[in-house]
Nucleic acid binder design. Structure first.
Lengths: 228, 228
DNA sequence: GTATCATTCAATTAATTGCTTGAATAAGCT
DNA sequence: AGCTTATTCAAGCAATTAATTGAATGATAC
């Protein structure tokens, strides 16, 4: 029995959805959202074996969500285009809204660490222009160097813990990292609050900031510490 | 080994994506986008066995994409909320843009039947207000009755073929049905063009029209035929 | 050429998915 | 109560998927 064109097209749509249907692949996409990466780097950062990462990347490529090119002996993967991020963000919104389990996980892991609403991109942009805020970027230095919110300080949880006194207690602090569910920004906010700072998280991560066309700064200038 | 909160949340996201990862479930959602339906009605319209449809609906419900309530001996399913349609629409956009196979299918099945760009919702709305257009709704009468583009005529391909002479050849015709890939609207446009009419498809279906907050008319008044 | 490194391929295993079939619930009708 | 209808459950089978392992390919460095 042959299928009609609608079924054929829906099969392709389903193929794309399936490609998003594994946590490891979502995490690979999260890393690719920071910039293009080779297989081994992705495997290391996600904790997957290289062969396993390679196979997941193939599935993403077959679905058209990522593309690859060879550079010497490295195979460089990157997201196919910016609509992939939009799709992921929509998936997140629908899931947060309709899956009770997500709310439960967020509460049990993060509650008490972040009782306040996260800061929206627009709010942060406004405060940034008035220099009313200190921004912390909790990602690894190479991702920070490839692009970050202008004026942001790049810190690890360790360096942060050692250098609280260098931060201005009068100024609100906003922390962000790769995406909405980065544990690091939750931890940073929790640590800051314990020390009496006013701290909140940015609602999403840096890829969404850049995708929204907001200003981006590159380089390692603000690694630590540039007080505004 | 235990997994962190991010992995746990990504597992939930992946679950939602997986629920969209089967053509039958996408088709079930397409029908549910027209309005709430009982299991047997969905099974009949999609050509699935009742047990099979029931199981697919359970998966959609587990993922939070649909909800159900009992009404007498019927179990009525409906989309969880309007964000589900947004997600589907985003999935469509990403897939159309990045999956070469979809372009191939569209060409081989539909090309020659629709060389022209489809009409956007906004364009149709403008022309509607100037009464410059005849709108055809190619869906079954019950879906038409539950809501349609104001002034649209509800036709089947059969009735259309018999009553070309009742249409005004001077006026452009726009046809639509459930979604972007409804074969019926392609067929209707093809038939109309063969008879010398200027006909195009609406870019998407009625659910997207309604979701965009555009005017909706209900009832069977325009079943056939109300010349403007 | 040989050695080395990054990636992919191929084979295997365990787990999951999709579908069918027939029985079990659940609600309404007479 | 008994009958009918709508839906779900449970068992079973074929097909697919995820992950591991070790071998094979492709490219650079010596």
């Amino acid at each position: 029995m042959s299928i009609g064109p609608k079924q054929a097209i829906y099969t392709e749509f389903a193929g794309v959805a399936r490609a998003l249907g594994h946590p490891h692949r979502l995490e690979l996409i999260e890393h690719l959202a920071q910039g293009e990466r080779a297989v081994e780097a992705l495997a290391r950062r996600t904790g997957l074996s290289v062969a396993n990462a390679s196979q997941h990347l193939h599935q993403l490529r077959r679905a058209g969500l990522v593309v690859s090119r060879r550079d010497g002996r490295y195979m460089i993967y990157r997201l196919a285009d910016e609509t992939v991020l939009t799709l992921l963000s929509t998936l997140r919104r629908v899931a947060e809204r309709n899956v009770a389990e997500i709310d439960r996980i967020v509460r049990s892991y993060f509650d008490g660490r972040d009782g306040l609403e996260p800061v929206s991109r627009k709010t942060l942009l406004d405060r940034l222009q008035d220099r009313q805020v200190t921004v912390l970027d909790v990602r690894p230095p190479d991702e920070f160097a490839a692009g970050h919110v202008p004026g942001a300080l790049n810190v690890t949880l360790e360096t942060l813990a050692q250098r609280f006194e260098e931060l201005d207690p009068a100024q609100e602090i906003v922390a962000y990292c790769r995406g909405a569910y980065c544990v690091l920004s939750f931890e940073a906010v929790a640590a800051l609050r314990e020390h009496g700072f006013t701290a909140r998280r940015l609602e999403e991560g840096f890829p969404e900031w850049r995708a929204a066309g907001l200003p981006v700064e590159t380089g390692l200038e603000g690694a630590w510490i540039r007080q505004s």
